[in-house]
Design a protein around this nucleic acid. Structure first.
Lengths: 150, 150
DNA sequence: TTCTATCGTTGGGATTTCCAATGAACCCGC
DNA sequence: GCGGGTTCATTGGAAATCCCAACGATAGAA
């Protein structure tokens, strides 16, 4: 468990915020991916499932725009989730081009499981920070991501 | 300029630190990539060039371990950098299996350019933070990446 | 009607990341 | 010296991610 000696990055690279940020994000993604894998889900499955909960019933195009996912990739995700009976695609009587995507009861339960798993992974991710620091950290992240503009 | 409306992530996903971290890291990578592209470089080109500066003369295997890059990918990066006359691979007389990788004068100049470009990109990335916050932010990132353990 | 745009879907390309195998060269113990 | 195991640089390719183009079907506007 300790033989994964992470060598220090080059001296010019190590102090770069973008580098640290990339490393931290990679750790976060790894933790979350592991947690979700326990429920047979991947990150985008979780994201799409959560988006459907927010917007249901929702057309695929709107869904894709909501999560900034390519329509092609969304089809694959939705196929996976529908094959697992976590959501359904129903024809929209108002517009026969559209699929009204909605969660199933199993989808809602799975979403709860994934949310719990994701929260645990994130708790582990932020474990090195004090509660006050976590609040500050998230606030800084929101500002950096341009939550207010661009 | 405002038609790049970034839709809000799902309510269950948006507050996740791992999600924010991923978004912030993506922004950082994008900014740095754009800055480096102006010098015809990519992120790994910059990282490898900086690692060579730290370790030269260095064998490729050691270099790969230092930056945690797959040997195959390192070959491609080194080919690019050598084709651009930024570094040289010299046979190691002590061990004929090894290539002693060293910077050229042009490589050193390019590294300075990339460092300046990277610093500018990172300044833009952290622009929303006050100087004090930047110090705190980097400290938190270092702790999260497990700079002190794991 | 006809023209334009959007829907879900399919196909494919570019990029990144990772693993396996090769031939050459090294080191160690005999 | 000489085998056995290891490391070196390199090659080949799988898998995942991301992005763009096009299609038939459908809707809405002129």
């Amino acid at each position: 468990m300790a033989d994964k000696a992470a060598p220090a990055a080059p001296s010019r690279i190590r102090p770069l915020p973008s580098w640290l940020l990339g490393r931290a994000a990679a750790r976060g993604r790894s933790l979350v991916a592991d947690a979700l894998a326990g429920h047979g889900m991947k990150m985008w499955h979780h994201v799409v499932l959560a988006a459907v909960e927010d917007l249901e019933p929702v057309a695929q195009a709107d869904l894709g725009r909501a999560v900034a996912l390519d329509p092609k990739d969304l089809v694959g995700i939705l196929n996976d989730l529908q094959d697992a009976s976590l959501l359904v695609r129903a024809p929209d009587p108002k517009d026969r081009r559209k699929n009204a995507v909605s969660l199933t009861a199993a989808g809602r339960r799975r979403l709860e499981d994934c949310t719990a798993a994701g929260d645990r992974a994130n708790a582990e991710l932020l474990a090195p920070l004090t509660p006050d620091e976590r609040v500050q950290f998230l606030d800084m992240l929101r500002r950096i991501t341009g939550a207010g503009g661009d």
